[in-house]
Computed example of a mutant assay.
Amino acid sequence: MALQKGQYHPAGPGDLRSPCPYVGLGLDIASTLVNRVFQVHSDDPKSGPRGGSRAGLRDPNQVNKDGIPVLNLDQVGRPHALEHDVSITRQDRELGDCIHLDPELCRRFLRSAKEGKIRTADMGRYRKTRYEEQQKDNPDLQFGKFEHYVGCAELAALRCVFGKGVTKGIPDDFVRAVFGEERLPYDEGWSPRRFKAFFPEALVVLLVISHYAWPF
Results as ranks from 00 to 15, higher is better:
I29L: 05
D97W: 08
L105V: 01
L105H: 14
P185L: 10
E83Y: 08
E182G: 09
R119G: 00
L141V: 05
L95F: 02
A202S: 12
A197D: 10
I118T: 15
H211P: 00
F195M: 13
G56V: 01
P21Q: 04
L73D: 02
T89M: 06
T129K: 15
Y186H: 01
E115D: 15
Y212D: 14
A11F: 11
H9N: 11
A156D: 04
K136S: 11
Y131Q: 04
Q135G: 09
A213C: 03
C106Q: 14
T167R: 15
I118M: 03
W190D: 09
N35Y: 11
D15C: 01
H80M: 03
K117Y: 02
F198R: 14
A213F: 14
Y8V: 02
R108G: 15
G163F: 04
A2L: 10
S42Y: 04
L203N: 12
S31L: 03
I88D: 10
P139Q: 00
D74L: 02
D59S: 01
K136Y: 06
V34H: 12
R193K: 15
Q7T: 09
F198I: 00
E201M: 11
G151P: 09
S112W: 13
L110W: 10
N61W: 07
Q7M: 01
V70K: 08
R127M: 13
N72C: 10
P69H: 02
A177D: 04
L71C: 00
R183M: 05
L207H: 12
A213T: 11
R78K: 15
F109R: 10
E94W: 05
N35D: 13
Y8R: 00
E94L: 03
D122K: 09
F38P: 04
A202G: 08
G12E: 11
A2E: 07
R90H: 15
F216A: 08
G52W: 09
Q135F: 13
D173M: 05
Y8P: 04
N61R: 14
C20S: 05
Q7E: 15
F195C: 13
V37M: 00
A213G: 14
R93N: 03
Q91K: 13
Q142W: 03
P139F: 11
C98Q: 11
R50I: 14
D28H: 11
A197R: 10
S87R: 15
I118E: 01
A11I: 14
E181S: 01
L101I: 15
T32A: 06
C106A: 15
A30M: 15
H41L: 02
T120W: 06
D15T: 04
P60I: 11
T167C: 02
A11E: 14
F38R: 09
V86D: 10
L105P: 09
R125Y: 14
G52C: 04
